[in-house]
Write a protein that binds this DNA or RNA. Structure first.
Lengths: 134, 134
DNA sequence: CTTGAGTCTCCTGTTGCTGGAACCTTTATA
DNA sequence: TATAAAGGTTCCAGCAACAGGAGACTCAAG
């Protein structure tokens, strides 16, 4: 099948499928006489696989690694689990950071009158002027 | 003061301070005879302000806007509050996405034996093969 | 006087695509 | 059968927000 159909079936934009071919992540099965990329079912399955792993927050190099494990029948599930747990830890770190951020932002936003006057605890926070103890 | 000291005082890398000058976010007060950027206290305060707003997850254009509000004595705090609340909403969305991701990843990782065998629910999930109903 | 640190500009690379230009092939319709 | 639309192709540029490095300078200390 041609790239458009492969894109539809994998749920990826055509541009992205072409990009994945360019960087050697998911190669088409071959080329037609006229030079069109030709995708078979296996290639489409890989595209879908990558699409999902990307949505799970894995980077392209990580997807590459997962894909090679996916294609390797002799793999050990421990290898995959290790990757997943590293990613989970990274997600937890990021989540904690973002939560802290949101909480502090929410706190200062709450303290801001949000009216026509210029006094603003939010800006004060950014400027690090502590208005509670002048 | 020269860029190195300004960088130290604002807690930003020299490269970043130079970058902010390039894009017109925080301009130095002037230039020395030999062409060195010259930062005064006000410029350093702005650098610190930007440093903090960046850490709060605001983009450069948003920092620009906050900075102009910060510099504008006639501002209305409502303007700042609106920006902050938009950002809080965005953070909440992102947090929800990341939490979902982590939860599902944790769920499949939990189901994976993580041993020397090739069977792996994590990969199955990415390949969308449901092993519970073959 | 020299050495080392700091600064300058300019260029490239990062991540993962996305948009566009200019051109070619296939497919559907008149 | 002619033609137009849709869908391919390559290559080039750009996004965010810097980071790294080359090659040339200026400055302060010993």
């Amino acid at each position: 099948m041609k790239i458009g159909e492969a894109a539809r079936e994998s749920g990826l934009p055509v541009k992205t499928v072409r990009y994945y071919a360019d960087i050697g992540l998911v190669a088409p099965q071959g080329r037609s006489e006229s030079g069109y990329r030709d995708y078979d079912a296996a290639a489409v399955a890989k595209l879908r696989f990558v699409s999902r792993t990307r949505r799970f927050g894995f980077t392209i190099p990580e997807c590459r690694e997962l894909l090679s494990l996916y294609e390797n029948d002799g793999r050990e599930s421990a290898d995959v689990k290790r990757l997943a747990e590293t990613k989970i830890a990274a997600l937890n770190t990021r989540l904690a950071e973002l939560t802290d951020l949101r909480d502090e932002l929410a706190r200062v936003a709450m303290a801001c009158a949000g009216d026509a006057r210029p006094d603003c605890p939010i800006l004060d926070r950014f400027a690090a002027l502590d208005r509670t103890s002048p």
